[in-house]
Structures are given as structure tokens and as C-alpha cells.
Amino acid sequence: MAEMLALRDYYGKTVAELGKTNKDIVVLDADLSGSTRTSTFAKAFPERFFNMGVAEQDMIGTAAGLAAGGKIPFASTFAIFASGRAWEQVRQAVGYPHQNVKIIATHGGITVGPDGPSHQAGEDIALMRAIPGLTVIMPADAHETAAAVRWAAGYVGPVYIRLTRDKFPVVFNDSKTFTPGKGEHLKKGTDVTFIACGLMTSIALEAAALLEKEGVLAGVVNMASIKPIDHELIVRVAAESGALVAAEEHSIIGGLGSAVTEVVAENNPVPVIRVGIQDDYISSGAPEELLDACGFTAAGLADAARRAVQLKKQAASR
């Protein structure tokens, strides 16, 4: 069993660490600093922390103004509010002028669990990906979170990083780095390849191990950088394995699955099965129950892979 670490813990630690050396870093939160872990930074640098109250639109606007004034703002709240409530502020005040704002959204996806669909952001990646100029990232684990946050602090431009509430299995180690537009081919497979992000990367690795036992060689790509996306790697694994499964803790509409499908359709059409939230609101419940209900399990992903392989075979026999 892999070590379990919370992505948001590593965000909190990392931004506080960066704040020691980079005095331009400021942090904003909308009354969720305990949950998003920006409280770590707030304790260390109270003069550079701004609690904006329950007002996400104003938070994003203020962050944009701070960036225009030469600061490097990290603005945090839950993913549903950062991407939904404040969408137009992100579009107008951050994306359009290419303002140097880092939006670090926690509690994305269904693993926020018992809070229910009102708090389960399944649309945030779609919303953020549609804004020109934004870099959109969904890290697979705590170490990739730290790497993405470090990268974002050094990059000049708008960034959206989507994190979660729960602890996730560790995939990488603390030497992990992040490069926008680059995925990682974690495991090669000639029958089918999983392209995954967030929690789904670790589940895809489990699924690939399951499939191997039945003689299906499944590859795994971690694609934290959803925008820009790694066209070259997607086209290559599509050619090598001839069938893909895109897996994300997000709606099948507009997220990683859409991004992968777009690349494949325009370059090297092969069957793509999208594993994600099936255009629905899920339910309150324990994260494990919800993951199970959505098929976000090793068995669920293995099943999707078998369907992708089946489609490939059908196409070949036509």
C-alpha cells in the first residue's frame, strides 16, 4: 500500500517555504484558509496574507490588482468557487490581461464526499481550460503538487492548479519536477494506454497491474498539465497502443478526456474511452463510496481499458 499524503498539505507547506525567500509572494483566501492550508503561510507572513472573507469574485479581482502592482499572488478557495463563482473574474481580470495570478483550488472533484454535489467541482477544469492563456494543472500526488506550486511561483502568467481534500497515494518522490505541456510515460503498454491526472494516475497504475495478469499490456501516462497538453506524447502512445482511456476525477465534458480526444481526433484517430463523472451530480457520501459509484477504481478503469481494446479490434476487423 502506497503512502497517503494530502495534496493541500503540500501546497500549504510549499507556498510558505517559497514565501521565505520570495518577498513578492502574497496569499489570498476566501475564509477557507484552514481547509486550503494557506493558514500555514498566514501564520508565517501575516502581513502578506489577505483573508477576503466569503467573496471569491473580489478575491480574484484583488489578486489581479496585486499582480498588476508587481506581487505574485496565490489565491485559494474550493475549486467550485474559484472556477465557478469567480469564472468571469478569472477570465477578465486574470486570463485576458495575462496577469501573474496563481489560483490554487482545493476540494475539487467528488472526493470532497459528504459535503455533496454543491461542493463537488466536476466542471472546474472545463471552465478554466476554456480561458485562453491559462495553464491548467491537476497534480497526481503531494510531491507533484509541491513541484507544480514551485514552478508556478517562478512562471510569469496565470495558472490554475486543482487539488483535492483527501489524501492520495504517493506516485512520485520529493525530487519530482513539473514542466508545463509535458506528460510522463510511467508505464509502457502495447494494447491500451491510460492517460490520467490527479487521483486517477495512481488508480490507473493499479488497473494496469490488474490487466497485466490477464495478458493485457496497458500503459500509463500521467498528464498533470491539462493545458498546455502534451500533443506529442498523446499522439505517440495512440500510435504505440492503438487505444486510449482518459481518466479524471472530473466531468467527461471539457476536461482531460476532452483534451485527449481533441488531440487524437485531429492527429491519429484511435478509440478513446473517457472515464469521468458521467454528466451528472453525484451524491453525498464517503469518498470511497463515491469513487466506487463512479467507477473510479482499478476494476472500473480495467473495464474501460477492455472496452477500448474491444473497440480497437472491431475497427481492425472492419
Partner: peptide, 8 residues
Amino acid sequence: SQANGLAL
């Protein structure tokens, strides 16, 4: 909001 950010 952005003017506030500049002022801060």
C-alpha cells in the same frame, strides 16, 4: 477590487 489590489 483591482484598485484595492494595487493599493495593497
